[in-house]
Design a binder for these strands. Structure first.
Length: 427
RNA sequence: GGAGAGGUCGCAUAGUUGGUCUAGUGCGCUCGCCUGGAAAGCGGGUAGGGUGUAACAGCCCUCGAGGGUUCGAAUCCCUCCCUCUCCGCCA
């Protein structure tokens, strides 16, 4: 969420940002917010004055009672009415503060100056690549669905039977390949890139969703367990970022770098009919996620580092990809800047998003109250949070199967995964 | 699921017949004095948020969270959360 002080001092910047995000219609929210903010201040002043009076007189009453000199009846009845006023004003104030909080929570993050202008995904800019790796595909390529089915490694039909559409089952060598990918990525990030591995819960409370910004914006995209008030995580970003919710981080520990595997659950409501084939859009998938907490001045370097760490996986797997910078109209509300890594699918003949690498600056940290003190004397500051998929296996699997297929319908296992799979070829 | 105990300012603790607790003490940390230097000793400081100020000061709120009673709540009442112990059940 945005700092109300920033909004107050730079309302025009906030509105300009909304326009860059193609959300100019929300400009009214900013004025409403400022309006509420100023009445809130006024009201705080009034209640605080009354509370100060009550505190002072209550002490006088205590003195009178203790000494037994004189009567406190008059003061008590005065304070009774003061207290009634306070109760009333506090209720009004609480209402205002709730309203203000709700407005603030729905405003998107600031945008970094380097985020390109644009209305939609068509206006995203190529940042790196395409990075090519040659694979011998001079035959009729099959798509990942055909390959998965004929090799008996993917079973969408039975997944639909036991759970529903969009819940794939991996079988035999497919299951092993999936596990190999996850392990390879975790090992690479922990051993080569300096991340600490975390294995988080897959269900979280609403506070956690709010902390990272999925709540309230994506409320309808998250699976909910009403009996227990728990939500299935749409990404490991949620539990891992919330590890430090409401904490004052020891500055010596910064920057913090975590990597986590998790299953990810998404309802994908409203997207029926789009990319329904196989792995292109599923309700449950696996992802290895990198999450970082940095000092504000270090976050943009960290963004590039996370990107390079995700790229390192694709280079090791020799999977062609490119990196794009999302434009103002396409970037998510939480992010100040975001790169997408897209892997090439020879069968679909297009790039598929396999990773998103984002800097949230202090947007999530403010929501989830994650701070540090540069030194013992300085004021607490919000950390910057970042994350990047490194990577999601579903679309990676699409690209991998398609690139590594052979003319006779088998799939070779990429070199680097062979120690993990224990076999060289899927047949 | 049932019964009990407990959650206090970094840590450990005091405080539960409501008012002298805007929270004491010890440890830790930190600054100063002392010292050739250090230890010990002595003295001071040591949370967050809001409001306010040029900046201070001041004022308000926070003793797990949220309500309530009261002129006044760490202290009484209610709800919830968490931790520990015991019992039951169980992948």
């Amino acid at each position: 969420m945005l700092d109300i002080n920033f909004v107050r001092q730079n309302p025009d910047d906030v509105i300009a940002m909304l326009h860059r995000r193609q959300m100019g219609g929300d400009a009214g929210k900013v004025y409403k917010l400022l309006d509420i903010d100023s009445s809130r201040k006024e009201m705080v002043q009034r209640t605080d004055d009354l509370k100060a009076l009550r505190n002072r007189v209550s002490k006088e009453i205590a003195d009178i009672k203790r000494s037994g000199q004189g009567s406190a009846e008059e003061l008590i009845s005065q304070m009774k009415s003061v207290s009634d006023q306070i109760t009333e004003l506090d209720a009004d104030l609480a209402k205002l503060e709730t309203e203000m909080e709700e407005l603030l929570l729905t405003l998107p993050n600031r945008l970094h100056a380097s985020v390109p202008e644009g209305r939609s995904a068509d206006d995203n800019l190529l940042y790196k690549g395409p990075v090519e790796f040659t694979h011998d595909l001079d035959f009729e390529v099959r798509n990942h669905l055909d390959l998965g089915k004929s090799l008996g490694i993917l079973d969408f039909e039975r997944g639909a039977k036991i759970s529903g559409a969009g819940f794939p089952v991996y079988c035999g060598k497919g299951a092993r390949l999936e596990r190999a990918l996850i392990n390879f990525m975790l090992d690479t990030h922990t051993e080569n890139h300096g991340y600490t591995e975390v294995f988080p819960p897959f269900m979280v409370n609403q506070e956690s969703l709010r902390g990272t910004g999925q709540w309230p914006k994506f409320a309808d995209q998250v699976y909910f367990m009403p009996e227990d008030g728990l939500y299935a995580i749409p990404t490991a970003e949620v539990p891992v970022t919330n590890l430090h919710r409401s904490e004052m981080i020891d500055p010596a520990k910064l920057p913090i770098a975590y990597v986590a595997y998790s299953a990810c659950f998404r309802r994908e409501a409203g997207s029926y009919g789009k990319d329904t084939k196989g792995f292109l859009r599923v309700h449950q998938f696996n992802k290895v996620e990198m999450v970082r907490f940095t000092r504000p001045e270090a976050s943009y370097d960290a963004l590039e580092q996370i990107l390079s760490h995700a790229e390192a996986i694709l280079c090791a797997l020799k999977i062609p990809y490119r990196v794009i910078t999302l434009c103002g109209g396409d970037i998510s509300a939480n992010a100040a800047k975001c790169y997408d890594i897209e892997v090439w699918s020879p069968a679909e003949n297009k790039y598929l998003e396999a990773s998103s690498v984002s800097n949230f600056e202090d947007y999530q940290a403010r929501r989830s109250n994650i701070r540090f003190k540069a030194d013992s004397k300085s004021k607490p500051e919000f950390v910057h949070t970042l994350n990047g998929s490194g990577l999601a296996t579903s679309r990676l699997m699409v690209s991998l199967l398609e690139h590594y297929q052979t003319a006779d319908g088998k799939v070779m296992v990429p070199e680097v995964l062979r120690p993990y799979t224990g076999f060289d070829v899927i047949d």
